[in-house]
């Protein structure tokens, strides 16, 4: 489906995940974050970059991966993206929702 985010029309899933990463930019990320009640700071951007990097390498995203990443610890991750951290963080990063259970 189409959605207007930050004055740009983007293609996304019903849940709001971008389907074309080429349409992602930082303004769109900020706007999606705002919809989720999150104001993006430096630590958020570090996580977003990490997730995008992992996604590019086609590596599965898991909470254990976050724990081992060295980018952020799990407690802070939950604080930065409250209420479903990996789901929200991937949505803001413009990459697909993780399929795994862990």
């Amino acid at each position: 489906m189409k959605k207007v985010i930050a004055n740009t029309t983007v293609e996304c899933t019903e849940e709001g995940y971008l389907t074309d990463f080429g349409q992602w930019n930082k303004d769109i990320a900020r706007a999606i974050a705002k919809e989720q009640g999150i104001e993006l700071g430096d630590d958020h951007w570090k996580v977003i970059e990490y997730l995008q990097e992992k996604h590019q390498k086609e590596e599965a995203l898991t909470i254990r991966g976050i724990k081992k990443s060295g980018v952020i610890d799990v407690k802070t991750f939950y604080k930065l993206f409250p209420g479903g951290p990996l789901k929200k963080a991937t949505m803001i990063a413009g990459i697909p929702k993780p399929k795994g259970c862990i």
């Binding site: 599965a60 898991t62 909470i63 254990r64 991966g65 724990k67 799990v74 795994g100 862990i102």
Partner: peptide, 12 residues
Amino acid sequence: LDIPPVGEFLEL
């Protein structure tokens, strides 16, 4: 499948 061992899982 990236499922941690019991001790690490408890920490997580």
